[in-house]
Amino acid sequence: MVTIDIETDDGQREILRRMMLIRAFDNEAGDRFADGEIPGFVHLYIGEEAVGVGACSALEPDDYITSTHRGHGHCIAKGLETDKMMAELYGKREGYCNGKGGSMHIADVDAGMLGANGIVGAGPPLATGAALSAAQKGEDRVALAFFGDGAVAQGQVHEAINLASTWGLPAIFLVENNKFGEGTPVEKQHNLENLSETAEAYDIPGFTVNGMDVTAVYEAVEAARERAVNGDGPTFIEADTYRYRGHFEGDHQPYRDDDDIEAWQRRCPIDAFANRLVDAGVLTEDEVDELRAAAEAEIEDAAAFAENATDPDPSEAYEDMYDVSVPELSTYAGGSLRADGGSTTDQ
C-alpha cells in the first residue's frame, strides 16, 4: 500500500496538507534562524515541496529514503513529527537526534528515513546499500535516494547507480534539479540537457518530470517502485523544480535575478495542486485556507515545543559514539586526562 493514495479525496487532501506543512515549517525555520534562535545554518526546501511529498507518498511506509542537506521537506513527507524536527533544529534533547544532528542530520531510521546529509552525493551509496539489504532479506522494500543536481557531478553517485543497476537492486534515484548547485547554475556544472540522460549510461529507465506537479512526481515514483519490487532494477528520475530561497539562509544570491524567482513562484506547487483540487470539487477555497491555517498552527506549536525543550547536558557530548563502552571517552571527558587518571588506572 502506498503511503498516501492520491486516487482518493482524503489522500489528495493529505498530500496538499503535507506540502503546506513543509512550507510553513521552512518559513518558520527561516524566521527563527534570522532571529538567531536556531544555531548553525539552515537550507530551506521552499518551492520543492511537490518533489518530496509526491515521492514519499507513492512509497510504502516501510521503504527507505536518503536525503540531503536540504532535508526538512523529505522528513515531513516521510511522516516525521514536526515538533521533534524543530526541537532538533534548536539543538534540544527532545529532537530526533537528541540535539546532536541539527538541521542537516535529522534522521529516523525506524521510519525509514536514513538521514539528511551534509555531504553532497553521499546519500545514493547508502540507498544502494539499503536496497541491497532489503533484497538480501527478501523484503518487499525499496530505497529512494533524493539528491540535488550538484550531486550528479559526484563520483560516488555514479558508483551507487552502477552498483544498483549491475545488481538489479530495488533502488530509485531521484535528482531534484533546483537549477543551482550551491551558488553555481546547473548548466555550468553539467554538459547534459537533461540530467536524466545519466540513466542511459547505466541502462536503466531515466526520465524528467515536472517537479512542480506533485501528481507527476507521484506517478513517476509509483512506477519506479513497481519496477524495483518486481526485480527490474533501479530507475533514475529527474524532477524539474526550483529553489525559492538561497542555498542557505543568508545567501545573497548573486547568481540569479528576482524575475527568475518570481516566474517560478507563479508555478508554486502548493497553489497549483490546491487550485486543481478546488476545480475538481475536492476542496472549497475556504477549506484550502483552513488547511493552510491548520498547517501553520501546527508549526507554531512545533516552534513553541522546541523553544521550551531542554538543552542537552554537556555530559551527553560523550554519549552515543559507540555501542560498546570505550574507556577513552570517560578518560578524556572534559578535554584532558582526568586528575585521577581516568578509568585506565581504576583498579
Binding site: P125, T128, G129
Partner: peptide, 16 residues
Amino acid sequence: EAGFLGAGVGAAATGS
C-alpha cells in the same frame, strides 16, 4: 570502493 563501501554502510544501517 566509494560505491561498495558506501553500500556497506547503508546495508549496516538497515539490519545487515
